[in-house]
Design a protein around this nucleic acid. Structure first.
Lengths: 201, 201
DNA sequence: CTGGGATTGGACCGGCGGTCCATTGACTCC
DNA sequence: GGAGTCAATGGACCGCCGGTCCAATCCCAG
């Protein structure tokens, strides 16, 4: 090479790379995150990235970890915090479901376990209840990944139609109709309450 | 081309393509399923595939649908059927979590809704309870995607260590220790029972 | 027998994640 | 202050992927 670009003054760092990744994910969704997009945004080459991040999977995990912020609020608030994080970053649901061993999921586990322990659970009961709640939250997270509002509505309508078509019972019909107009957040919280009743009963 | 291979006697069909995809997934996991692998196994070219299947996503959804078989057993057995299907086809968990609108998930929804309705639930209560259970089952499904036994053990040990390290309380320590030695299937069923208690209570 | 529509399959394309390595600039040591 | 060292840089390159295209071929209706 005849002429090399002089070393940048704004040094690359894992932090800046993760920050750029989060911005790209927020703006363009999961599909928009390519290492080329990241390096373009940081105005650098691809090789440089790999001195700070092992690979794309690790970058995704780091982005999710960067975005999941949990205090030590009680269990319902904890669950809602996860829900709201996914609401703010739609790509997060898919990412949390992708790998159960990533740091962000580990932090959710720890928070849930701690809160359940404060509720008096121990031993196997604590393990079972923790797994149930974490799995519920992550399942709900994954389900919320609807790309856009129209697609989500299509999905719910298809579901309602199939369900309704299978049983002429007016009660089933009513339930199917309700599907299209429910509030995700309220329904999520209702699920948490079902769970809480289940462990206290 | 001077000489074209004569038309195959064993005609290509969507069924045969899906069957090949399931076999490849079972043998080599998610990463092993490429359209090239499918066409190689079927001894055909790639273009032919697209006369029967729209794209890879649809093929994956069809494979999942092919493998999820649910009778109309009561709710606990229904949940266990999903669990066992994932046990038999480890790639299934990830696939079910990938797209909430795919046929396989629709069928799970329908089964859960039907059974809950038989338990006497209607209206919003039915919707909330159904969503809670389906989300739990799919969350548990996604979490079971551990590639091999060793990796899964590493994960559980890391989780136990983090959790234990955060609180010297002997009860927490005990719960952390339990993590490494629990039975997935029993724990899954315990989670179902928690939700069922919460629903009926 | 023949024409035309459906099927086949291989060449091709753009883009991806990841690797490699010559070049560079910033520190260290004297 | 000068020289040597070494991590950081970034662009060329690789193999592979999903998907498209279309000439060649077969099957069937008339």
């Amino acid at each position: 090479m005849v002429f090399m670009t002089p070393r940048r003054t704004d040094a690359l760092s894992r932090e800046r790379i993760v920050e750029a990744a989060v911005r790209i994910l927020d703006e363009q969704g999961e599909g928009g995150l390519t290492l080329r997009a990241v390096t373009d945004r940081l105005a650098t080459g691809r090789g440089a990235i790999y001195h700070h991040v092992a690979n794309k999977d690790e970058l995704l995990a780091a982005a999710a970890d960067d975005v999941v912020r949990l205090g030590d609020a009680p269990i319902r608030e904890l669950a809602l915090a996860v829900f709201d994080a996914i609401d703010a970053h739609p790509w997060l649901g898919a990412q949390l479901a992708r790998d159960p061993a990533q740091p962000a999921v580990l932090r959710i586990w720890k928070g849930v376990g701690t809160q359940l322990h404060r509720l008096g659970l121990t031993g196997t009961a604590l393990g079972d209840a923790g797994a149930a709640l974490v799995n519920y939250v992550l399942g709900a997270a994954a389900a919320r990944r609807a790309p856009d509002e129209a697609a989500r509505k299509d999905y719910l309508e298809a579901l309602a139609a199939q369900w309704a078509g299978s049983d002429p019972d007016p009660v089933v019909q009513e339930a199917a109709a309700l599907l299209s107009e429910h509030d995700d957040r309220a329904q999520f919280l209702a699920g948490v309450d079902i769970f809480l009743r289940g462990i206290s009963g």
